[in-house]
């Protein structure tokens, strides 16, 4: 397999000479353009008369200057956009996914449903955003619509695969009992795959927040719009880098929240977790340390 991969990459890359000097070029870019990140993006805009303003020009009357900064206001818009898109996308993707899952619907229904979902996710959200920006103009609305459509396609695929992983026994009991498709969906499949569905929903929210940074490139609003401003002339890369760090921090926070929420539906709650040394140390040493800690 590795050999095949090597043959493919050798076929695709014509000029291996372009690798030459790459680390130096990157080093220059990092040291001269990106680093240090310019944290002024966490401050309100100061006008010539000394007053503080929000990015839209309103006077900053918040208790903390951070709340008037580009990073905060941009991130809040992006999170709102991602929240709406994820939620609306989820409500549409669940029924579609239930029609696409082969253990819930016959193939003549499952295949068209899969085609619809594949169609929605085969256009990247940035292309959807471009189409909506052409139709509706710039702003958060085309961004929300783009994210929603992409969410339906992407989340729908993850969901029907999770649904197909549900044990047969409860589904068969339901089928024998004569439960309807929606009863099976609401009362059997959703509870049984709740861990996966919840994790996918939270992942999709995180994905949409990250993607908010990209959608700004086509004028879809949010933090991406500011990043787009900074990576265009006059090239404030260190400000863009600071905003990307903000996005990263938000993604990490979402991941931690996701872990907390999912703990309500996973079966790991009462399981004794392994100690750190059982993961890092060789087995013999880990066992020794474990027995010592048990004695304590």
């Amino acid at each position: 397999m590795i050999l095949i991969a090597w043959v493919f990459i050798d076929d695709l890359v014509d000029d291996w000479g372009q690798v030459e000097g790459a680390p130096e070029k990157l080093q220059t870019f990092f040291t001269e353009d990106l680093l240090p990140p310019d944290w002024s993006v966490l401050e309100a805009e100061e006008w010539s008369d000394g007053s503080l303003h929000k990015p839209n020009g309103d006077i900053c009357d918040e208790n903390f200057e951070l709340f008037c900064s580009k990073a905060w206001t941009g991130m809040v818009v992006t999170i709102k956009m991602a929240f709406v898109a994820t939620l609306v996308g989820f409500f549409f993707s669940i029924p579609l996914a239930s029609l696409a899952a082969t253990n819930m619907a016959p193939l003549p229904i499952a295949i068209p449903a899969r085609v619809v979902l594949a169609g929605l996710r085969s256009l990247p959200s940035i292309i959807w955003a471009l189409l909506f920006a052409i139709a509706l103009g710039f702003g958060p609305l085309p961004g929300i619509l783009a994210m929603t459509l992409y969410t339906i396609g992407y989340l729908g695929k993850l969901q029907y695969e999770a649904m197909e992983g549900v044990h047969n026994a409860p589904l068969e009991s339901g089928m024998a009992m004569g439960l309807t498709h929606s009863e099976q969906l609401f009362h059997v499949v959703i509870p049984e795959s709740s861990n996966h569905l919840l994790s996918q929903l939270l992942f999709m929210f995180e994905y949409n927040v990250r993607h908010g940074a990209v959608l700004g490139l086509v004028g879809a609003g949010g933090i991406g719009m500011y990043i787009d401003n900074y990576i265009n002339p006059p090239f404030d890369y260190n400000k863009a880098f600071a905003l990307l760090i903000v996005v990263f921090v938000v993604v990490v926070i979402i991941d931690l929240i996701s872990m907390m929420i999912r703990s309500f539906v996973t079966e790991e709650g009462d399981v004794k977790r392994p100690k750190w040394w059982s993961v890092i140390l060789p087995p013999s040493m880990a066992v020794e340390m474990y027995s010592e800690s048990e004695e304590e």
Binding site: E172, S173, M177
Partner: peptide, 14 residues
């Protein structure tokens, strides 16, 4: 028809 399969067919998370 009431069917109780070998693995009981309960919704474990409900």
């Amino acid at each position: 028809i009431g069917y109780i399969p070998q693995r009981l067919g309960l919704v474990r998370h409900s």
